[in-house]
């Protein structure tokens, strides 16, 4: 009974701030945290621990809310992944591409055709790839690690003498 209203009110709260890539609506985030503390303090069900490995291999751990999308987690927690979520979660690009762990991927909700259409255009597509805007944080995901595709930028780089 505790987790249900928590999920609902939090997701509405987190949906309202403008999903801008650089600015996090501080006020709403603070309110969300207060709400989290008042409703879920005794129950751990609302908080889910997630580990993000960014492009350069650096790991950040955050506690996410059940019901948030992974795109929202990245934005709200200010994870500074360059260019993440360019179309702001409207299934019009593939910039929120994330790679999951083997055991986790199979347990997630199946992909809609539209998600796979966009994912097919993603850099470094793998069999464990999903779009962060389409994955909702669930309780069972506690402790999972998601990876942002590594930069592949240097693979074509030629020695400087050539230019």
């Amino acid at each position: 009974g505790v987790s249900k209203p928590c999920v609902h009110s939090l997701s509405t709260l987190l949906d309202t701030p403008t999903l801008s890539v650089h600015l996090v609506d501080v006020k709403s985030e603070t309110t969300a945290h207060l709400l989290l503390h008042s409703l879920c303090w005794s129950s751990s069900s609302c908080k889910v621990l997630l580990h993000f490995v960014n492009q350069s291999g650096m790991k950040t751990s955050v506690s996410a809310m059940e019901g948030e999308s992974l795109l929202e987690v990245v934005i709200n927690k200010n994870l500074q992944i360059d260019g993440f979520g360019a179309c702001e979660g409207t299934l019009a690009c593939s910039t929120c591409h994330l790679i999951f762990e083997d055991g986790v991927y199979e347990k997630m909700e199946p992909m809609a055709d539209e998600e796979m259409d966009m994912l097919d255009l993603a850099y470094g597509l793998t069999k464990l790839s999903r779009l962060g805007c389409q994955v909702t944080v669930e309780r069972w995901m506690d402790g999972m690690t998601v990876r942002v595709p590594q930069e592949v930028k240097d693979r074509r780089e030629k020695p400087e003498a050539e230019i």
Partner: peptide
């Protein structure tokens, strides 16, 4: 008819 793609304008504006 692809207004979603134009959301990138928000980041450009910032």
């Amino acid at each position: 008819d692809h207004p979603e793609v134009k959301n990138v304008i928000n980041t450009f504006t910032q």
